[in-house]
Design a protein around this nucleic acid. Structure first.
Length: 967
RNA sequence: GGGGAUGUGGCGGAACUGGCAGACGCGCUAGCUUCAGGAGCUAGUAGUAGCAAUACUGUGAGAGUUCGAAUCUCUCCAUCCCCACCA
């Protein structure tokens, strides 16, 4: 028998499959149920295929082959995301035209993919840089334009100085260019946008009805960033106009002590004349504008701002005037670009208020009752403090109240006083002070020989705990750990000391008689930002935050100040790029008629040849005057073309439609073809496209749906990500680290089938996995074993031949395992759990090896369920060893025999008090009574149950019986 | 700071709705085969104690629910990913 030689057989069957394209082509005429299984098409980089690609592509290939064998009409296409910055940057570096290098790379990728035996329908291959494709990318632009979803506006945009182009928000996250990792600056430019914001709500709602990873759905939801709040006007003193502010915390409005507008806010220009310190304000604004996003958002950066003097705004709820600031911690791009500032309940406002010494006014408490109680506790503390000062008592306040004060939290558990005397004399004196103030000793707890803790209570029910400070007496005398537990951590002691100093100032400064006005301006640390109950809020005091928001919004609406408002973080998608290697934007500018779309019949606007395609701040397309100069489609006068190209993500936002009808010259895809094939049933690709590509594709689909082009509104019914494959050293695979695994080399050494199996066996599809070359050999051994199993079929029962392989359902042990394996593998593929499917087949093969003889039919069935995983070998066995004339991929996926999957006898676990003590063989389906009888006959069990009461028996059918006995 | 995950032998990982923890594979150990080699074969392989049968411990840490917890609940720790002044 010839040895297993993957190199030879893989080449042979790849050639065979190429000569029989009908095997893997989607059938336009078939009435069979369709299945669209899609991979994220790759950007054909010069580095070639990555083992991460192989993982995703193998998974979808197994699934596609399986679905075909299950009788589905499968569409499984491949194409190239060929336009884009990397190709161009590479071209600039090497001096080779991007068209040439890209096509070289595509050739390389194609060869690699074919060497893996992936079953793509190559007749449908697409290339986004091909005019036949980008004609329709341009058509999509016009489609959106004509429906008011593409527009041009001057805006502050992300500009990458290194790539010399603008970027979408999605590509400039954190102020860093996604491509070159350089800093992104803000520039005012006129650019083309797609109105994705129009679909914000639909994009959120649609997530509920698709089978996607939860984490991806949540990431998209966060990116869209819906928030429900209120918008209202703050009238400016002496002006008719006001400032509109947006808030999600309308319930805190009584705590507003100032207002802030962003430096870009247009109101400043309008009220310029009223501003006393305009020069100063202007200076601040100019500084802020010069800063990059990165500088403005830098972590832990101190907040800055300038008061707009001479003007104030009026809180509509209280009619009180508060100052206005301009500060760059307020973003011009979100909400209204202006906020009401509530330092007591917002961390940013708090930080700002502290720095500029602005009043802080509490309007929320977590618990209304304890708020009242706390005021009483404070009264008591004030008394104690004053008295203690007179007697020169040295003490610290700590524990709950101190922490609560520091955190700005008023809390039920924190309504007594924890005092610590700093020396023995002070404890004595404090006791005297407390007794003088009418406190009664209610408890006394000896901590050690020398240390005692006393608890006092007054007629108001206020408890005071006066304890000794352990380490002032010497640490050895007490349990330090215990002290820490009792008094809180060391930090709280330090804070408390600081607190007392502040508290002193507070009592001196604030001798207000009004009980419900607590000035929290002395606070340091955290701020109460949770929802709670309102205090100091006029007629709304005592309401819950939720209820108050509703009632306050109604009040705003009734009085014409504003009302409820929902906002989204997502911005419109900026698609202009001042770069060469992309699809031209099909628009023409005419002096007389303004912007005019290119007529559909004139598409595509071909990407022109240019001498120099290096970026120069404006599009390189501008250097080709034949391209630039054209005529106005409306009036025929001389006009100029739009010079920018489109973001490459536009190309990939609709490619999955094109696969249904890739050669269509009249439409991006014919209506009946779309109806036949779409939406995509299973989409597999990396998680790095969580927001960009996946969100844009959904947007395009929803736009087509809204304007009556298609009757579904989600493109990908089921989505799964393959986890990233990291290098053997635990780091990311990267050329610079020299730890990249080239799939070609693995194929050369072990074979494509082994590589496929290895990548699937590594672990769950979605998990991050570490490459480990030395483990690959196990999969090679497995295939070798399968290969050799044929020997065992040679001598088999002579009446069975390859043409007549015998009955499928003989009831033997090995046959029963075979059918269990068919069941397991079928279920595992359905759930994309390829690792456990392979392990089930390994178990079967291990058992088959132990047999002397193997029926041909068993070997056939094994080969059939293995075929999606190791197609080359399965085809070789099928056609050469088993002598079949047709490809195994015309074979039907086997059904398991339910009778054989059911065991006649099972091992029943016997437990005593939940611990396994024995197991016995019993007929399956045994009843509790019978099981109990058999179990109690076991010597081991008798040992445990003898002379004991069996209080309870738990019986789980075909699994276990558990005796609960008294100890 | 917010959100999402993850944590099981020397390693990758199994364990369905709570029911034999460590399947399967790598590695390792011993033996066989071979001129040799190993990408062959056989047996063993969580830890501790024991010649052994066996017993006890054990799924990041701690508590809880339960006859029974890797799985459920709470608290904490660690690692990774994403977002981040979004009012």
């Amino acid at each position: 028998m010839p040895k297993y030689n993957p190199k030879k057989i893989e080449r042979k069957w790849q050639k065979y499959w190429a000569e029989h394209p009908e095997l893997f082509e989607a059938d336009e005429k078939s009435e069979k149920e369709k299945f669209y299984c899609l991979d994220m098409f790759p950007y054909p980089s010069g580095d070639g295929l990555h083992v991460g690609h192989v993982e995703g592509y193998t998974a979808s290939d197994i699934y596609s082959r399986y679905q075909r064998m299950k009788g589905k009409n499968v569409l499984h296409p491949m194409g190239w995301d060929a336009f884009g910055l990397p190709a161009e940057n590479y071209a600039i570096k090497t001096g080779v035209h991007p068209d040439k290098s890209t096509h070289q790379n595509i050739k390389n990728f194609t060869g690699q993919i074919k060497s893996l035996g992936l079953s793509y329908d190559w007749k449908r291959e697409i290339d986004t840089s091909n005019p036949g494709y980008y004609k329709w990318t341009q058509w999509f632009f016009l489609f959106l334009y004509k429906n008011g979803l593409a527009y041009r506006k001057k805006a502050k945009v992300n500009w990458c100085g290194s790539c010399q182009t603008v970027l979408a928000n999605e590509q400039a996250e954190g102020g860093i260019c996604e491509r070159c990792k350089n800093e992104v600056i803000q520039k005012d430019l006129e650019q083309w946008f797609f109105k994705i914001t129009d679909f914000a709500e639909e994009l959120i709602e649609g997530l509920d009805k698709i089978d996607w990873p939860q984490s991806t759905k949540i990431a998209q939801k966060n990116w869209i960033g819906k928030s429900v709040g209120a918008e209202f006007e703050l009238r400016i003193t002496n002006y008719e106009s006001g400032i509109r502010v947006y808030t999600t915390r309308l319930d805190t409005v009584y705590g507003m002590t100032y207002a802030v507008v962003s430096p870009e806010h247009p109101i400043i220009e309008k009220i310029k004349d009223g501003i006393e310190n305009y020069k100063e304000v202007e200076k601040y604004i100019n500084e802020a504008k010069r800063k990059t996003d990165l500088e403005r958002t830098e972590l832990q950066k101190e907040k800055t701002g300038v008061e707009i003097k001479g003007l104030r705004v009026i809180n509509p709820f209280t009619d009180k005037e508060v100052p206005i600031f301009v500060a760059d911690y307020v973003l011009s791009t979100y909400g209204t670009g202006a906020v009401m500032a509530v330092p007591a309940h917002d961390e940013r406002d708090f930080e700002f208020a502290k720095k500029y010494n602005l009043p802080i006014s509490q309007s929320i408490t977590l618990d209304f009752e304890s708020y009242e109680k706390t005021i009483k506790v404070l009264e008591a503390l004030k008394e104690i403090y004053n008295e203690a000062q007179k007697e020169n008592v040295k003490f610290w306040l700590l524990g709950g109240l101190a922490n609560a004060f520091y955190a700005g939290i008023v809390y039920r558990e924190h309504d007594d006083l924890d005092l610590i005397a700093r020396d023995p004399a002070s404890q004595e004196k404090m006791i005297a002070v407390l007794e003088k103030l009418g406190f009664e000793k209610i408890k006394e707890k000896k901590l050690t020989e020398k240390l005692t803790n006393f608890i006092f209570k007054n007629s108001n029910g206020i408890e005071v705990d006066i304890g000794p400070c352990a380490w002032e007496y010497g640490l050895k005398d007490c349990d330090f750990e215990e002290e820490i537990k009792t008094f809180g951590d060391y930090q709280s002691l330090v804070l408390s000391r600081k607190f007392l100093i502040n508290l002193k100032n507070y009592f001196i400064k604030n001798r207000s008689e009004e009980k419900d006005k607590i000035d929290l301006s002395y606070l340091e640390g955290k701020v109460l930002t949770e929802k709670g109950f309102l205090v100091n809020s006029g007629k709304y005091s005592g309401l819950s935050s939720e209820k108050a928001r509703e009632e306050m919004a109604v009040w705003l609406e009734k009085n014409n100040f504003g009302g409820r408002k929902t906002t989204y973080k997502i911005r419109d998608w900026l698609i202009s790029r001042q770069r060469y290697w992309g699809s031209p934007i099909p628009m023409i500018y005419c002096e007389k008629c303004g912007w005019q779309p290119v007529s559909e019949k004139d598409l595509p606007v071909l990407l022109p040849e240019v001498k120099d395609y290096r970026p120069k701040g404006t599009s390189p397309l501008g250097t080709n005057s034949d391209f630039v100069n054209t005529v106005c489609p409306k009036c025929g006068a001389a006009a100029k073309r739009e010079l920018d190209t489109m973001d490459t993500f536009v190309c990939s936002s609709w490619y999955f439609f094109r696969f249904s009808d890739p050669k269509n010259e009249k439409e991006f895809a014919g209506k009946e073809k779309i109806e036949k094939w779409l939406p995509v049933d299973l989409y597999i690709g990396g998680a790095e496209h969580t927001v960009l590509h996946l969100l844009y594709s959904r947007f395009f689909t929803k736009a087509l749906h809204r304007h009556g082009r298609i009757d579904f509104d989600e493109p990908f019914k089921k989505l799964r990500h393959q986890g990233i494959v990291i290098a053997e050293d635990g780091r990311k695979m990267s050329k610079s680290l020299g730890n990249v695994i080239n799939p070609d080399e693995i194929v050369k050494e072990y074979g494509a089938d082994v590589l496929r199996l290895y990548e699937m066996f590594m672990g769950p599809l979605e998990d991050m996995k570490r490459w480990n070359t030395s483990s690959i050999i196990g999969l090679r051994r497995f295939l070798e074993r399968v290969w050799r199993l044929e020997e065992k079929t040679q001598s088999t029962n002579t009446q069975n031949t390859k043409q007549n392989p015998g009955p499928k359902t003989q009831n033997t042990k090995i046959n029963s395992l075979l059918h269990k394996t068919i069941k397991k593998v079928t279920e595992d593929i359905d759930n994309l759990r390829f690792n456990t499917a392979i392990s089930a087949m390994m178990i079967l093969v291990n058992e088959m090896e132990k047999e002397k003889e193997l029926p041909i039919i068993s070997y056939q069935l094994l080969n059939t369920i293995l075929s999606p995983f190791a197609p080359h070998m399965a085809e070789e066995i099928w056609q050469e060893k088993l002598g079949r004339k047709e490809s195994i991929f015309f074979e039907k996926w086997p059904e398991y025999d339910p009778k054989l999957v059911q065991d006649e006898e099972i091992m029943l676990i016997i437990q005593v008090n939940g611990k396994v003590r024995d197991q016995i063989k019993v007929p399956s389906g045994v009843k509790e009574e019978e099981a109990k009888k058999l179990a109690l006959e076991s010597q081991k069990i008798i040992k445990y149950t003898e002379g004991k009461d069996i209080r309870k028996i738990i019986f789980v059918k075909d699994r276990l019986i558990n005796f609960v006995i008294t100890h």
